[in-house]
């Protein structure tokens, strides 16, 4: 890996800006996400701040089982985010549909609409779990970069 790539990857790992989107959740997970953004949990330690627009964000925190009406909007929000981007499904509903899996008005899970990088179960997922999830997402991204790097070097 070139030095400039290393610097860029370091910067990406150190400043994951998040945006929060409710795709039909009961608001339980959203309150926990908002709680995770308060000074008590202080996600700015990891360089994370909440942005209002998907254009500035790296990580989409998505809660809810994705209602059919919201699916197109969710896809649009996802496409408005610049690369590289990640989606975290927060709560049991966002992971698999949860209690309302199979209901006529939902598509059961965020991964039915957009690719998801990290699932955080829980009803609702606690702020600690959400922060843990974001940190683990960054760790897995770092590991995948390392693996790709090793593969490249072996290929040569």
């Amino acid at each position: 890996m070139k030095i400039i790539d290393k610097v860029i990857n370091w910067a990406r790992l150190k400043s994951p800006w998040v945006i929060h989107f409710n795709a039909g959740a009961c608001n339980g997970c959203d309150i926990e996400v908002v709680a995770a953004l308060t000074p008590t949990y202080d996600i700015e330690r990891f360089g994370s701040i909440l942005r209002g627009t998907p254009r500035h964000a790296d990580v989409l925190l998505c809660s809810g089982p994705v209602t059919r009406q919201l699916k197109d909007r969710l896809v649009r929000i996802y496409e408005q985010m610049p690369e590289p981007k990640f989606v975290i499904a927060i709560g049991a509903c966002a992971c698999s549909g949860g209690a309302i899996d199979g209901c006529y008005s939902v598509v059961s899970g965020v991964d039915q609409a957009v690719p998801v990088s990290m699932y955080i179960p829980g009803c609702p997922a606690s702020p600690d779990a959400i922060i843990d999830g974001v940190v683990k997402l960054l760790k897995s991204y770092e590991d995948s970069l390392k693996q790709a790097d090793e593969k490249n070097e072996n290929g040569k």
């Binding site: 370091w10 910067a11 150190k14 400043s15 360089g47 790296d58 690369e83 590289p84």
Partner: peptide
């Protein structure tokens, strides 16, 4: 970090 990350996006 914020500046470099935004430049590389």
């Amino acid at each position: 970090a914020d500046f470099i990350k935004l430049l590389a996006k």
